[in-house]
Computed example of a mutant assay.
Amino acid sequence: MIQVFSKRQDKPHSYGYGEIDAPVFDPIEFAISPNGTDWTSCFDMPDMDGVYCTRAPDVQPAVMTDNLKKVGLQDGSRLLSTSYSTRELKMETYFDGIDEGDAMLAYDALQRFLISREAYWICFANWPQRMYYVRAKLAAPTFTNEKSWTCEVTFTDLIGLSRSVGTTQDTVYGFGNNLKQKPQYAFSTSKFTVYNGSNVLIDPERRGHPFKMTLNGSSNGNLKITNKTTGDFVHGTSDLKFNGSFVIDGVNPKLNGEGCLLDLTKDDNVITLQIGDNDFEVENFTGTVSFDFAEWWLS
Rank of each mutant, 00 (worst) to 15 (best):
A22E: 12
P23Q: 11
P23H: 09
P23S: 12
P23T: 07
V24N: 09
V24S: 09
V24K: 06
F25Q: 07
F25R: 05
I28W: 10
I28D: 06
I28A: 08
E29A: 04
E29R: 05
F30G: 00
A31D: 04
A31M: 02
S33V: 07
S33F: 10
P34F: 06
N35F: 13
G36K: 03
T37V: 15
T37W: 08
D38H: 14
D38C: 04
W39P: 04
W39T: 03
T40A: 08
T40W: 05
S41C: 12
S41E: 09
S41N: 04
C42A: 14
C42G: 09
F43E: 10
F43R: 00
D44Q: 09
D44L: 08
M45Y: 01
P46L: 03
M48Q: 02
D49M: 09
D49I: 11
D49H: 12
G50V: 11
G50N: 07
T54R: 10
T54C: 06
T54I: 14
T54G: 13
T54E: 10
T54Y: 04
T54S: 08
R55G: 12
R55C: 06
A56N: 03
P57Y: 01
D58Y: 07
D58R: 11
V59G: 10
P61T: 10
A62T: 15
V63W: 01
V63M: 06
V63Q: 09
M64L: 13
M64Q: 13
T65R: 07
L68R: 03
K69V: 11
K69Y: 03
K70E: 07
V71R: 03
V71L: 07
G72N: 04
G72F: 05
G72R: 04
G72P: 01
L73T: 09
Q74K: 14
G76T: 10
S77M: 08
S77A: 05
L79C: 01
L80F: 01
L80E: 05
L80R: 04
S81C: 02
S81Q: 06
T82A: 04
T82Y: 03
S83Y: 12
S83D: 07
S83W: 06
S83Q: 11
S83H: 07
Y84W: 13
Y84I: 14
Y84G: 01
Y84A: 08
T86R: 11
T86V: 08
R87I: 11
R87K: 15
E88K: 15
L89Y: 05
K90E: 13
K90S: 13
M91R: 02
M91T: 15
M91A: 13
E92N: 09
T93K: 01
T93R: 02
Y94L: 06
Y94E: 10
Y94P: 01
F95A: 00
D96N: 15
D96C: 11
D96W: 09
G97E: 04
G97C: 12
I98G: 03
I98L: 11
I98W: 08
G101I: 05
D102F: 00
D102P: 00
M104H: 08
M104F: 14
M104C: 04
M104D: 15
L105Q: 15
L105E: 13
L105C: 13
A106H: 03
A106P: 01
A106D: 01
Y107Q: 02
Y107W: 15
D108T: 15
D108P: 00
